[in-house]
Amino acid sequence: MSTTEPAEDPFAAPDATTGIGSAAGDAPVQRLRPPRHRVSPRAPVMWALGSLSGNLLLLAGLLVVRWFDWFDLAWWVWALLAVNAVVGVVVSPLVRYRVHRWESTDSAVYTQSGWLSLERRIAPMAKVQTVDVEQGAFARLLGLATVTVTTASAAGPVKIEGIESATADRLVAELTRRTTAEAGDAT
């Protein structure tokens, strides 16, 4: 089995030797492909702005401490803040943009998220209970939205962060139409 573009599929094993998995015998090895759609190209800006505002708040706090000379701040406090800012504003948004993907079919919602740890979530349409759209301040500024699909399980929410608001509205309408067709209490 060849490695299929590891850049495209972060879940692909580094090489084909995944231990006992391949030894399953007759059944061909199945792989999940990544979800089809990327999030909006403006999503990394949204994540960066979120991180930037948090870091600026921290910086302001530290400057206040320094100004009033409440206690000594070691050099590494500033270094940590700088690292945290660089990672949060530059590295993490870029990596997340490469990782975050989503897809909605007639039967399920499928997402991929994370940056250090990766996660793929699948929620069957028949089990969807609520569909929420939310827009934070930065998201509204950039015309983005976050769609959260929940099921009856507390462990099950599927979140699509940073897609265009128009796409989000279309997605919600579609999800609502599909899920209202389903009967039962979805447990």
Binding site: F11, P14, G21, S117, E119, P124, A152
Partner: peptide, 19 residues
């Protein structure tokens, strides 16, 4: 009773080909 799947991989798990 299964109403969804989450497949999770930490950085270390990814290097070990596990999830």
């Amino acid at each position: 009773g299964i109403i969804g799947w989450n497949l999770q991989q930490t950085w270390f798990q990814r290097r070990a080909g596990l999830a």
